[in-house]
Nucleic acid binder design. Structure first.
Lengths: 336, 336
DNA sequence: AGCTCTTGACAAAACGTTTTGGCTATGGAT
DNA sequence: ATCCATAGCCAAAACGTTTTGTCAAGAGCT
């Protein structure tokens, strides 16, 4: 096992001072072209890479960013629960790597007393309104980008990437009506997320405008099929039955679909079903699920770009809205 | 923004030297109980946390571990392609966090010229035989644990966690025969992974013993449904048709199922289908997929434990074999 | 010739830890 | 009375960078 070359080794090999090496390699200071060439050659030849530990001790930059989901007391969401999250992580990861950062994925259990001393920035997925974590991080001088907005922050404050949630839910609702729905129910998450807020509010307004009575449920206890299954049974146990259900996640939608079928009804003939997130499973289930494609990969990419630009003090374009598409499939069409 | 307290601040507050603080907080050296109490109180009161940068500069430990999939030239696998991988990552992540490590997930694009200067250890999923990365990392004194074995290493060398792949494939094959299969085909991955090697070899031996002619295909180009779809069509285009197909991943199995149905045949009546990995989608598809549960979460947990024990020089139990279960579902039963 | 400015380079300080080696009491054994 | 071991503590040296301040040499003015 051979010791890693240090900046001193490079300096010696190139016949210059360590300052010169550092300046050359980081593009600081002034150095003669020929000297720079020699330094670079020496560094290459030795396979030199600056120690990140030493570098960050000096510069108080760690080159580390983290990604995690907001935690509300009502609701504990894990980043691996939904393909949507995974895609965000994947997108962020690709950018982070390309720009020389390491990205750590923090699952909920980890978030709690994490030390944060080794993180330059955090991507916080779905912040709950007024999330105390955001302020804690800001106090520690850690840059935060959220996907979804912290509705508690003043406009213009906070960096975020988001979808147009209002447009998204309207896209779905209008699609359902076009396919014959007369009573649309909504299964959504608990917690004060901006998307759930906007979705719920828009849904209720839309109901009022379209003469439908709102039937919405906020499902506590995790994003999984079972919870939605039971909620759907409960929906159908009342006096007015829905003939369409929009579910805010694809896993809810799968549960709803199973519940509908367990009642001897069929999708889409007796009840249309749509999902607010897309996934491979959504495409595979029978009938395939009509779902909103939120382009989570792009959300992740943009969040990471924004985050790193901000960390490095670069000029950036600020917040970003990622467009949505409705993927129309069998679960909401072909009923007539 | 207030400066973080350093070890010097703690020392001053407790009225001792920095050495004493360091020793107290790390359980090194000898310190009086009362002094220790004072030091801890001071540290608590100031909210002191040691700078990881300074610590790792001194001790050359970074507190970082990474997880990635082996890359073969034939085959580029992304950790987010399969729920199986995600579960491994989740398991590893929980352990890493609990033991104070940060885990970064490296997607294939990132792996290439990653600097490795900030990594104490690596979990390498499915090493290809003689993977040069393993030696590169060892040369850099980075601990490596593989999930799946590097069959190129001498027995007793290398740390790994694995399933019993031979038992796993036999479990499946015998199950298929019990359900009437007379000609079992195998769709597997390319690349010299230990599981693919063991699976293929066991399959062929089993065929010989059971008077079946081996029909195996190694699918290059990614772990997805489409590839398996086409491979399945190709299988059925020959003179002898399979009446059962085992696929090493659930995504292959979904593709195979779609292909069978596209030929006007049905699963399981005309062709049984099984998968070598389980997933939520496998449970949801119609008919639900019979699949091997490899307990990937546990694989991840054990890999991370092993890795960190080794990094910290702790005594550990060495390599670990995680048991497998066959989850029997509709895609391989009820045919008679 | 004297002055100022620019270029290119360097030595030294700083970043916040851990570790090494040494020092002073204290108390028990000889 | 002397010696030794041990407990408890500390000062100083490292770890490998980046940054700050200084300086010499030369170029361009007046």
């Amino acid at each position: 096992m051979v010791k890693r070359p240090t900046i001193r080794d490079v300096a010696a090999a190139a016949g210059v001072s360590v300052t010169t090496v550092s300046h050359t390699l980081n593009g600081k200071g002034r150095i003669d072209a020929e000297t720079a060439r020699k330094v670079r050659a020496a560094a290459d030849q030795l396979g030199y890479r600056a120690s990140t530990a030493a570098r960050s001790l000096q510069s108080s930059r760690t080159g580390q960013v983290a990604i995690l989901h907001s935690r509300s007391s009502a609701h504990q969401v894990s980043l691996i629960e939904l393909e949507y999250f995974i895609q965000i992580v994947a997108g962020a990861s690709s950018i982070a790597a390309a720009r020389g950062y390491h990205l750590t994925m923090m699952l909920p259990a980890n978030t709690h007393d994490s030390d944060w001393t080794r993180t330059d920035g955090v991507i916080l997925i779905d912040p709950i309104s007024g999330d105390p974590l955001i302020n804690e991080l800001k106090r520690k001088n850690i840059v935060v980008v959220t996907t979804g907005r912290d509705t508690n922050q003043k406009a213009g404050e906070g960096l975020w990437v988001d979808n147009d949630n209002v447009q998204a839910i309207l896209l779905v609702l209008n699609h359902l009506v076009e396919n014959g729905a007369t009573q649309v129910a909504l299964l959504t998450t608990p917690g004060d997320y901006s998307y759930s807020r906007e979705t719920l509010q828009t849904y209720r307004e839309w109901c009022a405008q379209h003469g439908q009575s709102p039937m919405d449920r906020q499902l506590a206890g995790g994003i999984n099929e079972t919870i939605a299954y039971h909620a759907t049974l409960e929906l159908f146990s009342g006096p007015t039955k829905p003939d369409a259900i929009h579910c805010v996640t694809d896993r809810y939608a799968m549960g709803a679909m199973m519940a509908v079928e367990s009642l001897g009804l069929s999708v889409p003939q007796d009840c249309l079903i749509t999902a607010g997130t897309d996934s491979g499973a959504a495409r595979l289930v029978v009938p395939p699920l009509t779902a909103l494609d939120l382009h989570p990969n792009e959300v992740g990419i943009n969040a990471a770009k924004l985050l790193i630009d901000e960390i490095e003090g670069h000029k950036h374009e600020g917040n970003h809205v990622v467009p949505v598409d409705l993927q129309i499939r069998g679960s909401s069409t072909g009923t007539k």
